[in-house]
Design a protein around this nucleic acid. Structure first.
Length: 555
RNA sequence: GGGCUCGUAGCCUAGCCAGGAUAAGGCGGCAGCCUCCUAAGCUGUAGAUCGGGGGUUCAAAUCCCCCCGGGCCCGCCA
């Protein structure tokens, strides 16, 4: 609805600007304070028209005749700007009816396309840590947003079963897994131990290297052992993700691209490109793509590398449409190399959502050294902290209620605190910050939803209404509601789930203010306000859903 | 050392890609608001040379260059 207002403003400006000899479409911006809801700056025109911006703004504003059925209330020139004011009274019934009719489809659609979206894709060598959590949460939220925007999305987990990590685990597996602990924890313990031994002994390194070669050749017994170990670890990892509401549509085993010959075929194609070089080994010179680092495709023993298999993987994926990868910043160089190679082959070039690392105060995390904060730990501690808060605020509620609410608040807090931060900011993890339920977080948003529910459960369905003289809080709330489709579109196009996170905050803030100042049930405008509350509940619920956060009827 | 990236009040973050009006929030500080739909809320207040310096522009947190500081990368690892 807000976008409709914006296009109306543009539609009105365009012919007027054309009349002044300006061909470029007008670009609007959001004015501060009480200057209205959209502003057109006249400064860029000053030079062309050789007039003061103030004068141009006055002139343009003077030529504007607002059509009868428009969402524009009035237009004013101020400073060098033409300011457009939204007609809230006119928008209110249209907007509220649209939301209540469309319900959870309000704001959806508008985009097309099919994507495979790869996220999480941790090695099967231990529990997911909070860095993998950042990947999974960004990826899952983005998938939800793209689907809501109208795209077809298949989320994939790329299982790196051909790496040294898994071989290391398999090598030590005969030592017996600890069946008492969670699967990924058990594998992680083996991995740490095996790495310790490997560092000490050349012999061990050789044995592991032989295992890898046997696996690449497809030795039946070895394949079985790798598969079992990987699946065992994955069971634990999946359980971690499941608790956060994250599920993958499919799992792609890296080894399949070796087994089905596609790596071989890809390498043959690459050999015929002008970038191919053979010195000691086969590699690609990608300097024409601005990458000075050569990309090695094949070891001197004839086996392939991770990157080589990933090229075949991407060619396979392109059959299903666009490719989006959520990768850590440590893979930035590979992302560039991979893109260059695929361009070289005339294949679909992938998109990357790159996120920076989460480090600990003492340094970076390491699965190999067992130095990390696991996602399980973070979720458990956060839920426990949430329980303490629920228990403090709702002491008389039954235990079952407290547990359920704490689970939903805790898991939401983990997701929200990660997704709200732009992926290109490196984070330092500190427990006291992670467990601090600061006001600008998910409980604040869930609370707004719960407040709306509590009002609505005291009344039946809201009746017909006429729009009264609107208060400031009502206008702000209407504006926030009308902006939801814009926020979804921006988030989907820019692949930025954080945009939805900030939108949720904006809407919740507007609702809390409205709630504080405008009584609903005891108001003369009860029916109108009930509609407003209902609409807020619907949009907030949908928006939270895009972040994988569950809304709460009571908390 | 080279490449990429981030640097916004004591702390955490939005705004930067597509430059425009008084730089927007939260935490923490201070002062207030529950006879009224759950105070996990609301209001007010103090707090910012937008890392530093140049440049482009009528206009720079935003674009360009240099410097400083943090992170990531620079394996026949994945």
């Amino acid at each position: 609805m807000f976008d409709r207002f914006l296009s109306e403003c543009e539609g009105i400006l365009e012919p007027i600007l054309k009349g002044l000899g300006i061909e470029e479409p007008p670009s609007l911006e959001e004015p501060p304070g009480e200057f209205g809801d959209a502003a057109f700056p006249a400064f860029p025109l000053a030079r062309v028209l050789k007039k003061a911006p103030q004068e141009i703004a006055r002139e343009v504003a003077g030529k504007i005749a607002v059509p009868e059925d428009s969402l524009i209330e009035k237009v004013e020139a101020a400073g060098g700007y033409v300011n457009f004011h939204l007609d809230y009274g006119r928008m209110a019934p249209i907007l509220l009816k649209e939301i209540v009719n469309k319900r959870d489809a309000f704001g959806s659609g508008g985009m097309e396309g099919s994507f495979t979206l790869e996220h999480t894709s941790a090695n099967p060598d231990g529990p997911l840590h909070i860095g993998h959590g950042r990947n999974a949460i960004i990826g899952d939220s983005l998938a939800r947003i793209l689907r809501f925007a109208g795209c077809k999305v298949e989320t994939q987990y790329y299982l790196n079963d051909m790496g040294k990590q898994l071989a290391v685990v398999v090598w030590l597996e005969h030592l017996e897994l600890d069946r008492e602990v969670k699967e990924d924890e058990a594998i992680g313990a083996l991995y740490v131990e095996a790495n310790r031994r490997m560092e000490e002994s050349e012999e061990v390194r050789d044995e592991i290297s032989q295992l890898m070669q046997a696996y690449e050749k497809g030795d039946e017994g070895v394949v079985e052992r790798f598969k079992e170990a990987a699946e065992y670890c994955l069971r634990g990892q999946k359980e971690t993700l499941e608790r956060l509401g994250i599920r993958h549509d499919s799992i792609t085993w890296e080894s399949r691209f070796v087994r089905d010959g596609s790596v071989e075929r890809t390498v043959e194609r690459l050999k015929r490109t002008p970038c191919a070089r053979t010195d000691d080994v086969l590699y690609l010179d990608l300097s024409e793509f601005g990458i000075e680092k050569e990309l090695i495709l094949q070891r001197s023993d004839g086996t392939y590398l991770y990157a080589t298999r990933d090229i075949a993987h991407h060619i396979w994926r392109a059959k299903k449409g666009g490719i989006i990868n959520v990768w850590g910043s440590d893979h930035k160089l590979l992302a560039r190399q991979l893109s260059a190679v695929l361009r070289l082959l005339g294949e679909e070039v992938p998109e990357f959502v790159i996120y920076e690392f989460i480090n600990l105060p003492e340094g970076s995390m390491s699965t190999r050294r067992g130095e990390f904060v696991s996602l399980d730990e973070l979720v458990c501690e956060t839920v426990e902290r949430a329980y303490a808060e629920v228990d403090k605020r709702r002491p008389d509620e039954p235990e079952e209620f407290k547990r359920e609410v704490a689970e939903k608040i805790g898991t939401a807090a983990v997701r929200y605190s990660i997704v709200r931060v732009s992926p290109d900011k490196a984070m330092t993890f500190r427990w006291e910050e992670a467990l601090d339920f600061e006001r600008q977080g998910s409980p604040f948003i869930q609370y707004a939803y719960a407040r709306a529910c509590r009002i609505l459960e005291k009344e039946g369905a809201p009746g017909e209404f006429s729009v009264p003289e609107l208060t400031r809080e009502e206008r702000e709330l209407l504006k926030a509601l009308s902006r939801f489709p814009v926020a979804v579109r921006d988030a989907a196009r820019a692949r930025k789930p954080a945009v939805v996170a900030h939108y949720c905050l904006e809407l919740a803030t507007a609702f809390h203010r409205f709630y504080m100042f405008q009584p609903v049930l005891k108001s003369r405008e009860k029916d109108f306000r009930l509609n407003l509350v209902e609409a807020t509940k619907l949009v907030l619920g949908t928006a939270l859903g895009l972040l994988g956060v569950e809304a709460l009827e009571r908390m």
